[in-house]
Write a protein that binds this DNA or RNA. Structure first.
Lengths: 183, 183, 183, 183
DNA sequence: CATGAATGAGGGTTCATTCAT
DNA sequence: TATGAATGAACCCTCATTCAT
């Protein structure tokens, strides 16, 4: 059934192109008409592929989540020492700062817009996936350490959003290294 | 003779009571009618004290900022060793986690809703004030260290928002201590 | 009872100062707050003297009407020939063009805002008073002639409103003279 | 495929049906909701065709203007003597009194609601078009004479509005004839 | 008498959503 | 499958009016 594949492929393509839009304008600030216009389709078409705005947003969140985890699970090849792994994590954050900030904003919006149990569970699950990916890539086990690294990354992304010129990601990551590896 | 009301005092009182509302519902998600209802006043009264929704939001942001800086500048009395200061910071974060998370969300909303140069400048200034307060209270000077601590706090607050049950603030702060004070 | 006199005097004074305001901004376009501000009193005071906005407007209309008729009934001393009287009417229109235009606008607004039988009757009565004053001052009797002169004046005022630079009142009145006095 | 609607045609149709509404209720007195209800469409539809209330009003004004000038430029076939032309003008005014009164009211509203230079220029232009049409149809040249006839018509319309029962258009026009053609 | 804080109905406008084509 | 005209609830905001002081 090639039709279904086409349909799903088209759907994903639309989702991908929504990502930046939602990150920039926010859930409430972005209208279905606007989305349609930016994607070059009518609102009718949007409703053909998605049941509604919340549905579209939720699917997009799921989509980013998958994309992100996939990318995060690959930044360090196995067998490297911790210091080197931390360096690679640092490179990853520096390179993906913009899109990770966007993803964070969307997660926070998701938290607000989908405040039911399912939404919360999805967010927890997502956080866990991130933590898991970091744990695996850094080859660390202590959940508090992972959580701390996670905090650190989230904070860097937040500062990056609020004051992009002032945040020196590299210098900051160095400090984490100190904490973990010792001096 | 007019009704005896201190205009500015009343204004501030309304602002204070908006804080949680905006943090929970977000700028776009919170309607003036809803604000009025929650505060127990009519929309007309709201417009009597504030020129409009953006104005109300901006004033509220300024108000939190002042409140927060004031609180943050007092968590550690002078003359204590760094380890003790970090402990006090940790206590401060633990105690104020909820309201600080709210403030962070509002800052991020502000970033989206007031995207002009003045808004951005205000956010940078606010971040600087926070950094300054932390620097002074911890008696630290290296801006990168301050920024890193800032990242750390912001990340804890973000995780606290997304997954309140899972974040052990105390355990995480311990790690920062290790990085700064050594083991 | 000097209090009552004071009260009425104050009321009339406020009415007088409303006139231009209503003419310029229109009934719906002028708010009670604005009236208060322009007159230097609070809205409360306005409601102390007038039962409400419609009442204020109606009283003001009555007030202009009285003023206007009084002025119109005096432009020509008795005993002059028709040609001279027409000249004096012309002078009167030229001098009072602005305030007469305002009065006309207000009459038209009154027609819209007070569409009940009493309002309509008041407008007819007012028109009759004007016609009567013109008839008496020009010493003419044919109601169609009076009505024609009335039309003429109203039309001049309308053109004066819509295109103040282009209307040469004197030249136009000359034509009426031709019609009435012959050449 | 989209619903088959000629956007511009639909727009004009809505404009035409707004005309009487605005004339009767005035700009400020007529709400978008009311317009929608009277035209049998939702407010959403109104905003689908017009950018807003001012835009709708302005387009309607332009529309009447075009309609009126077209009608006015055809009341007298060429080659008739002045007296006959005046008779035809009289017939025209008698027949179109109601719609011309409406147009005049709308012009006056426009004068108040669009007080900027462009609005004023448009009104002047409109007056000029009317004067031009009259000049051409009556085969007259003296601008003051045209303006006087214009005044006369405007005044008749004004009286017609304020006191419809009392104005004998025919009798009044006779007087203008006397002035122009002589007795 | 005078004030202006307070009200809430109703204004213009937007926008998710539906549906005839 | 795709379109965009159409809907109407709900938004922000204004304003005539009331009333405690």
């Amino acid at each position: 059934m090639p039709r279904l594949v086409d349909h799903d492929q088209r759907r994903e393509e639309l989702l991908a192109r929504c990502f930046e839009l939602f990150a920039r304008e926010g859930y409430a600030g972005l209208t279905m008409r606007r989305i349609g216009k930016e994607l070059g389709v009518s609102t009718g078409t949007l409703y053909h592929y998605f049941a509604g705005k919340p549905e579209l947003f939720a699917q997009m969140f799921q989509w980013i989540r998958t994309q992100d985890i996939r990318a995060l699970a690959e930044f360090a090849p196995p067998g490297l020492p911790l210091a080197r792994r931390l360096e690679l994590l640092q490179d990853f954050v520096v390179q993906h700062a913009a899109s990770m900030s966007h993803a964070l904003r969307i997660a926070l919006e998701f938290h607000r817009e989908v405040p039911d149990a399912a939404g919360r569970a999805l967010l927890r699950e997502t956080l866990d996936d991130y933590r898991g990916a970091i744990a695996q890539q850094l080859d660390l086990e202590d959940p508090q350490v992972i959580s701390a690294i996670m905090s650190f990354i989230l904070g860097i992304l937040t500062q990056h959003t609020l004051d992009p010129e002032r945040v020196d990601v590299r210098a900051q990551v160095k400090l984490v290294e100190l904490a973990l590896v010792g001096r």
